[in-house]
Nucleic acid binder design. Sequence first.
DNA 1: TTGTAAGCGTTATCAG
DNA 2: CTGATAACGCTTACAA
Lengths: 348, 348
Amino acid sequence: MTGGSYVRLEDVARHAGVSLATASRVLQGSSHRGRPEYRAKVMASAAELGYIPNPHARALAANTSDTIGLVIHDVRDPYFALIAGGAIDVATARGQFVTMACTYRDPELEARYIANLRAQRVRAIILAGSAFVDAATSKAMTTELESYYNAGGSVVSITRHRLPGDCLVVGNRSGAADLARRLVDLGHTSFALLAGTTRLVTIRDRVAGFKKGLAESGIEVDPAFEVSGTFDHDGGLRATQQLLASGRLPTCIFASNDVMALGALTALRRAGVDVPGEVSVAGFGDVVMARDFVPTLSTVHLPLEEMGAHAMELALRDERGSSPRKVTINGEVVLRESTGPAASRRRR
Amino acid sequence: MTGGSYVRLEDVARHAGVSLATASRVLQGSSHRGRPEYRAKVMASAAELGYIPNPHARALAANTSDTIGLVIHDVRDPYFALIAGGAIDVATARGQFVTMACTYRDPELEARYIANLRAQRVRAIILAGSAFVDAATSKAMTTELESYYNAGGSVVSITRHRLPGDCLVVGNRSGAADLARRLVDLGHTSFALLAGTTRLVTIRDRVAGFKKGLAESGIEVDPAFEVSGTFDHDGGLRATQQLLASGRLPTCIFASNDVMALGALTALRRAGVDVPGEVSVAGFGDVVMARDFVPTLSTVHLPLEEMGAHAMELALRDERGSSPRKVTINGEVVLRESTGPAASRRRR
DNA sequence: TTGTAAGCGTTATCAG
DNA sequence: CTGATAACGCTTACAA
């Protein structure tokens, strides 16, 4: 059908018997300008010839492009895979390309990649993944992003309110606090916190929110029960093993994300500890597979896919908003099998 | 640091006191041409000014680009997330961009997207995800890809040996046959096959291989135990429920991929059927989480991440291979908790 | 409205 | 080996 070579705008113009400029205007202008008969002719020719504009030429001439940069922590992490999926779908539907990078929370890698996206003049940059508490860590990246933004680029971040542009603010604090309250209602009184790195603001917020929720009932977390590690499956596994090794268990373990919770579940199972019989476990995020964990995981549901889609929509809106938008996303507590009434209570 | 505006090659040239052409040559030529003193000057100026080449201009002039198109079924599916992750990592390390699309096995969407990648003159296209048995379905896509390939583009596919270019051929048949043998060794005699859509060649191959493995021991699959559905979690769940509803169970269930197997596990658990006590379950692929399923999943391990990395390396090799390479990837059976000795045998 | 022509930032050709 | 200069395909003033 389409031959080996390319159809250029010039070919379309000639075929339609109009000038290059006219063809260009017709093809890009969603507006109704152009004499109807010319419009029709050009459209027909373009379709017949199978014309696809050269995005590079377009980018060069118009100083914009139709690709969006998506910077995430790791595609392999289901949390981000969901966000990416949602984002990619709306981009594809709108004829935009998505170029994606995984930066593994390495600020330097992030900075470098963003510089490249900027040079590529991507239409927008979406950043998903927590920032570090220490703002200086990502200074280079922030600077880069600001130049991009100031030059007219769109920036949408998820949970990075300090960055320029729009932001999807996840209610980490409130979600975790809600979860804590529900857990207390179940009768739990002693909690362990698998915090991951407390240098990530997401974790810090979730932990802070959780503690606040507990505090309302006068419950404090034993410092010995606050164990950190990496913010992933292994981190959850190791932290739990550490807990297990200490010989003392709380009645409930809160992992600051679902994947860590899964690690915790695995560690507990290996050690022969019954969940929720002996300990309850809860996570945060509600990754799709949380429903398939054994036991199914209690967690704070976040509409991850929609968040990705929403972020992409913000990134794609015609006029970059006069004022940056902050959209709050609130999670909803979902109690499933992994949390039960407190063990102590049960024994009564 | 970097100002708001852009540094162009011209600026670097002026700063270094050489011509545009010289600067261009120095900056792109990995070769040692250019007077050393000029080379040094240009490099220094570029570094000092923070020069980043404009990829669009480069693409337009040189008719190539430094982005690779990655077309997969769905990022949310851990199987593909792993492949994508492996691919993205090597691309990033080599300073290449990856633009990714999910096509959900929709041939039309695939064709459209590939046409766009082609127009964008991406440096290579990587295609992961099974083809349909019926070649006509993806005729348009194939044509598009061939034009791209014939025009000098690199194509690397995973499990699509009919396509032009290099191919990572997954030993679906042999892997499934191996698995079948091991399962027979365990004493199993009756098997159910959760096939997914038999229109996908991957599934067809896995099913055929599995049957072949069984046939070596004179075992046949009861047609009533061969149930199809979608090639995902839900497909596995539903197929298993269907099986359950029929009132008759085999001693072992083979799901043609891990995610389906997870669905099966969930259905079984909900129905109160013990695995592997009453039925054994096996999958294919060895998604990371297979180790966290309860029970941990027996499956055929595929080095998914390495496959993605390998595919990207093939895509990036300097000269497109004179002859297309076919690399065979063989899976390895991993027996974990989800398969045990056949239930009937146990009861003796 | 439509056409002409001047860029956009690089690469590549061709003289010097 | 180096330096002008013409592409590359498209957008967009500017002119008609």
